[in-house]
């Protein structure tokens, strides 16, 4: 109501065409990510200043949460990756990162690089173990190349 009154009084100066709430920082279609492993393609993409974009998030909500699998467009190729750190507000005790981090994997869940150079949330250990099924992709290989857990 207050907004309506303000708009009536002063329609030009205080029009509410912009939103002033904080953004959600969600990982969804066409979000730019940061590759944090040392795979050749990832390193090259980051150094050239062309970080990968999300072209699919493999879950029902189509919004990527921690540990979700995403398909990214990187250097003209399609690669799969796992989200290992999000900017979005997290639950209590789960770290919130300053950037949206991704680790590139292939279809079997084997990471393309052999070292992750940023800390990884410990909750990922449980999440990835849950996602891994016998005879399916093994995502826990990602945990083996992590250098530090927080």
């Amino acid at each position: 109501m207050f907004k309506a009154i303000v708009n009536k009084l002063n329609p030009l100066q205080l029009s509410c065409s912009f939103h002033t709430t904080a953004c959600l920082n969600e990982v969804r279609l066409l979000t730019r990510l940061r590759v944090v492993d040392n795979s050749e393609i990832g390193k090259r993409a980051m150094s050239e200043g062309k970080p990968p974009r999300v072209i699919c998030v493999y879950n029902k909500q189509r919004v990527g949460y921690i540990g979700d699998r995403v398909l990214v467009a990187i250097k003209g190729q399609k690669k799969k990756g796992i989200l290992v750190g999000l900017k979005q507000t997290q639950k209590v005790k789960v770290p919130k990162f300053d950037s949206n981090n991704v680790v590139l994997i292939d279809d079997n869940g084997t990471p393309l690089g052999n070292r992750i150079h940023v800390p990884i949330p410990t909750i990922l250990r449980t999440i990835l173990k849950e996602r891994t099924h016998a005879k399916g992709a093994d995502y826990t290989k990602l945990l083996a190349i992590a250098t530090k857990f927080v």
Partner: peptide
């Protein structure tokens, strides 16, 4: 900031 990566963790005081 750990390994040049900014991190924030929220805790409940009476957790």
């Amino acid at each position: 900031v750990v390994d040049h990566q900014g991190l924030e963790v929220r805790y409940d005081l009476y957790d």
